[in-house]
Design a protein around this nucleic acid. Structure first.
Lengths: 198, 198
DNA sequence: TTGACAGGTGACCCATCGTTCACTATAATA
DNA sequence: TATTATAGTGAACGATGGGTCACCTGTCAA
């Protein structure tokens, strides 16, 4: 029960911080959204900043177990169509999962203020995806599915445009459908460009 | 003299909003940074929100005159090397110009809260660059410099990765040199991939 | 010379901020 | 059953937020 409320506070914090930012969120609103009074929050966290730090801890830990270990790498696709399918599945998940959307928003809003948010933002938005697809493309080149090229460069050229459209979805959710179409077109174009010529 | 202070308030607002966000900035701090007392600010703007709106007006107007009109399109390069040079010049400018950095940061921080910031963010980060390079690539295809392809798709594939590294520079300025190197490598790779085979 | 006004000051208003504290209800423990 | 820790309450704290107002001072037009 104790831990339950403690977790619910972090959930509410994620939601409110992602909408109004850390500075724009008050403990009163936060506790009210949980149906308790503001002083109740202080039974679980000693300060607003402690909530923020706990939230960041959780986000960092989640990222680590989800994307940090090599065992969670998606399997290297056996076909180019498999690459397209896998990509669209990943994108589809990430632009619709509320928690992940809120995580990206929080990192976006706090990246200039907090060092740990800054680092995690770079992982989420840039290096994490690039590293992951470097592995995948490397494997696909070995299998002869993609033309021989610098896998890290291809991974960057592949993930960065997709990432920019994911940001668009976060910013303008009503454009999500359109963005998904554009991502699929981009994926097809990428495959057509870099497929092995053998 | 009146207008001078009015402008200086907007300059200070851009600086403080870009660092601490709208909610994280107080009129007291803002006026103090100008060497006057908070009530002095209210001689020029009726509220904090009015300052915000005036700042956004200015940013929108600046963007419009700078990138909105076709006459400000950079000339279509005559060589592939010219494309690389022009790109690096543009990037170099945009990652070092303090005002533009602050503008991007403000748009990043307020994109979920304010509709006009949201729209301008999409232009700055996505559609503006894509549209511009669609024109350029279209011209370069006509000249036979680039292979025949969908110019809008190429523009997107070209500008989005560059844009993501510009964001990295905003977030982690100490990585600017590294990011510039990576952008240049990406540009070269792009050119090698899409140059005309004639 | 006078009067109006633009620009700036400092005291003050009230709401809200994060935080504390004495207190209560509950449920597990000894 | 008595005790004790846990989770939550509600009033209060000082600090700070945005905003107002009476006042001062210099400039310039009438």
């Amino acid at each position: 029960m104790a831990n339950d409320t403690k977790e619910r506070i972090l959930d509410a914090a994620l939601e409110m911080f992602s909408q109004n930012g850390y500075a724009g969120t008050s403990i009163r609103e936060l506790s009210a959204s949980l149906g308790l009074v503001k002083s109740g929050v202080y039974k679980h966290y000693e300060s607003k900043e402690a909530i923020w730090n706990a939230l960041l801890d959780k986000m960092i830990a989640y990222y680590g177990e989800r994307f940090g270990s090599p065992e969670h790498l998606p399997p290297v696709p056996d076909t180019l169509e498999g690459l397209a399918t896998m990509t669209m599945q990943m994108v589809n998940f990430t632009v619709h999962d509320e928690k992940i959307i809120m995580t990206r928003k929080v990192l976006t809003l706090e990246q200039y203020r907090d060092d740990r948010a800054r680092d995690l933002a770079t992982k989420h938005f840039l290096t994490g995806l690039t590293d992951m697809f470097t592995q995948i493309f490397s494997g696909m080149m070995e299998k002869g599915l993609l033309r021989q090229d610098d896998p890290a460069m291809l991974a960057f050229a592949y993930t960065a445009p997709i990432s920019s459209l994911i940001h668009l979805c976060d910013r303008e959710p009503e454009k999500t459908g359109e963005a998904m179409t554009q991502i699929e077109a981009f994926v097809r174009h990428f495959i057509a460009t870099y497929k092995s010529t053998k």
